[in-house]
């Protein structure tokens, strides 16, 4: 049996970080995206421009902030705007990638952060949108990160807090939404994209040790599984070193 080199959350963070290109602007949502974005910044994307909904742009947080509006999010930021301005700039075209988490994501990439069960009589009341709805509506493309379980990947979200492709092809445009919508979904099992024709979620790669069958078992809808599914490259020693020592030294998030 091989040695356990990394935890599922560490893998998630490393895979997410790789999807960010140097020089891009990234609107960072709370939770796992904070970790992925900061890792990218410290690895291969020093020119990445982070936007936080609290109003900070272009900061260089020394370590993982605890909140998307705490004082670490504007450490060394050349400018601080307000909440409505950073969302306004996103609509204007200054936000390339929106980086989000959430409780549920469905086959069209819609995200639920509001309630489990019926809205008027919820089984679980969640946080509500925060900036998630705005990030997914206004940024050019959206990356979602979350744990992969059937109830977290349902055919249809109990409540659409944050728009993906809504009910399918052409729906985003019809609703008047500017961004291109969901682009990648990163779970602890694999990396997914979306089929151009049907707008449905499609498997791109399985993480090491995971098969497409396992992914399907942990998904509440029929995942499109093409013939050319790849294996996600493992986190490198360098990625893990920076993640553990510089991004999240006290294992707040990557445990």
């Amino acid at each position: 049996m091989s040695e356990v080199r990394y935890t599922p959350r560490e893998l998630l963070a490393c895979v997410a970080a790789r999807l960010i290109n140097d020089g891009e602007s990234v609107f960072v949502g709370t939770g796992l995206p904070l970790v992925g974005a900061l890792l990218a910044h410290k690895m291969h994307a020093p020119q990445m421009m982070a936007i936080y909904e609290g109003g900070a742009i272009g900061a260089e947080p020394p370590v993982l902030p605890w909140s998307v509006a705490d004082s670490l999010t504007f450490y060394k930021a050349p400018i601080i705007l307000s909440m409505s301005s950073v969302f306004g700039h996103s609509r204007a075209g200054y936000a390339d990638v929106g980086f989000l988490g959430g409780a549920q994501i469905d086959m069209y990439g819609n995200i639920n952060a509001t309630c489990i069960g019926d809205y008027d009589n919820p089984k679980v009341r969640l946080t509500g949108s925060g900036g998630a709805n705005d990030i997914a509506s206004l940024c050019d493309r959206v990356i979602f990160m979350g744990l992969h379980l059937p109830e977290r990947f349902p055919e249809k979200c109990d409540y659409i807090t944050t728009p993906g492709f809504l009910n399918g092809p052409g729906e985003r445009e019809k609703a008047g939404l500017p961004g291109k919508g969901p682009w990648r979904v990163i779970s602890h099992l694999g990396v997914m994209g979306f089929d151009e024709e049907t707008c449905r979620m499609k498997l791109i790669s399985c993480h090491p040790g995971v098969t497409p069958e396992i992914i399907q078992q942990f998904t509440g809808f029929e995942m499109i599984i093409p013939d050319d599914v790849e294996v996600t490259p493992e986190p490198t020693d360098e990625e893990l070193r920076i993640l553990r020592n510089e991004v999240d030294p006290n294992h707040l998030f990557c445990f």
């Binding site: 809205y119 949108s129 939404l177």
Partner: peptide, 19 residues
């Protein structure tokens, strides 16, 4: 007039906003 909340259930659970 903005581009947030469109197409989602938020529109249905907010009596103050309009599409």
């Amino acid at each position: 007039a903005c581009k947030s909340m469109l197409g989602t259930d938020i529109i249905r659970s907010n009596p103050y906003i309009k599409v």
